[in-house]
Design a protein around this nucleic acid. Structure first.
Length: 279
DNA sequence: AGTCTTGTTCGACT
DNA sequence: CAGTCGAACAAGAC
């Protein structure tokens, strides 16, 4: 569930608390979380390493370590972090997969109910992130680039927006919201998108992400699998969603009922009045 | 027990 | 060879 705004919110929070901190004792409670090496080697390399910087690329978190390694983390559906003072009484979350004791007597827990999140310890984060498309909030992502990219492909619009090698960081929530804002049907074939429509989509993508960022992410409901920044801090964006998971409710623009359809095997929410399929 | 959830990867096909 | 799309997968909640 964490998409660009959620991962960025977490990165900012972690930057505040983790910069220049050193990892002391590491515990891996679910081995598969460590994706590319065995947990013993992971622990060996992580213990004693200091965090020089924390970045985000697409939906990946990148810890820049002082031992010339990068810790690259993908939260997938339910990965999250919480911090608490070291010592008994705080370590009771049964979904904790990695426990990291810091040099300031705080513990950073990686908690992941569904166990899909992955840690990669690599020499250079680029080995993982190089296949990603441009950052939608960077100047690289221009109207011109988007128009060009759409015209060279023939995929359904929403499927293409979810393709991380086309554009990085969009997931089901923000892709759906952007398409609604731009009044584009998710099943439109990308090559048929006009310049005017591409301009609207470009603006809509940026606006959806910026709004998500401003609201510190989208937390849906209160379950364990939902997004929380760090600890139990939830985002405020869910109240302001226009279509996502609002089946049966009125479209905020035209009041027609929002419908749920499946596009590229994913549930998608649209207003059939605002988002027409004719070319 | 079966269905649903999401992001990503795999493999078949064009 | 590259793009597209559907199947499969990760694991747990209900």
């Amino acid at each position: 569930m964490p998409e660009l705004p959620e991962v960025e919110t977490i990165a900012r929070k972690l930057r505040n608390v983790l910069l220049k901190r050193r990892f002391e004792t590491m515990t891996v409670l679910w081995a598969k979380t460590i994706a590319n090496i065995n947990p013993e080697d992971f622990i060996q390399t992580m213990q004693g390493a200091t965090v020089n910087d924390i970045r985000r690329r697409g939906k990946y978190l990148i810890f820049d370590l002082d031992n010339n390694k990068d810790l690259v983390i993908h939260l997938r559906m339910s990965g999250k972090f919480s911090m608490h003072p070291a010592g008994a009484g705080f370590e009771d979350n049964k979904h904790t997969r990695v426990r990291m004791l810091l040099d300031n007597e705080l513990v950073l827990n990686y908690i992941d109910q569904r166990k899909f999140g992955r840690f990669y310890l690599v020499d250079d984060a680029n080995t993982i992130t190089s296949k990603l498309g441009p950052e939608p909030l960077s100047s690289q992502f221009s109207v011109e680039w988007l128009k060009q990219g759409l015209s060279q492909r023939t995929a359904q619009l929403k499927t293409l927006l979810l393709n991380q090698s086309f554009i990085a960081g969009l997931g089901n929530i923000y892709a759906s919201e952007a398409l609604w804002d731009a009044r584009l049907h998710p099943c439109r074939i990308s090559s048929t998108i006009s310049r005017k429509e591409a301009t609207a989509l470009h603006r809509a993508i940026r606006n959806a992400l910026k709004k998500g960022l401003k609201n510190m992410g989208t937390t849906l409901g209160t379950g364990h699998a939902n997004f929380y920044s760090v600890g139990r801090r939830s985002g405020r964006n869910s109240d302001q969603l226009n279509v996502f998971r609002r089946t049966g409710q009125p479209c905020p623009r035209c009041k027609k009922t929002i419908e749920r359809i499946i596009v590229g095997q994913r549930s998608t929410h649209i207003c059939t009045t605002c988002q027409k399929l004719e070319d």
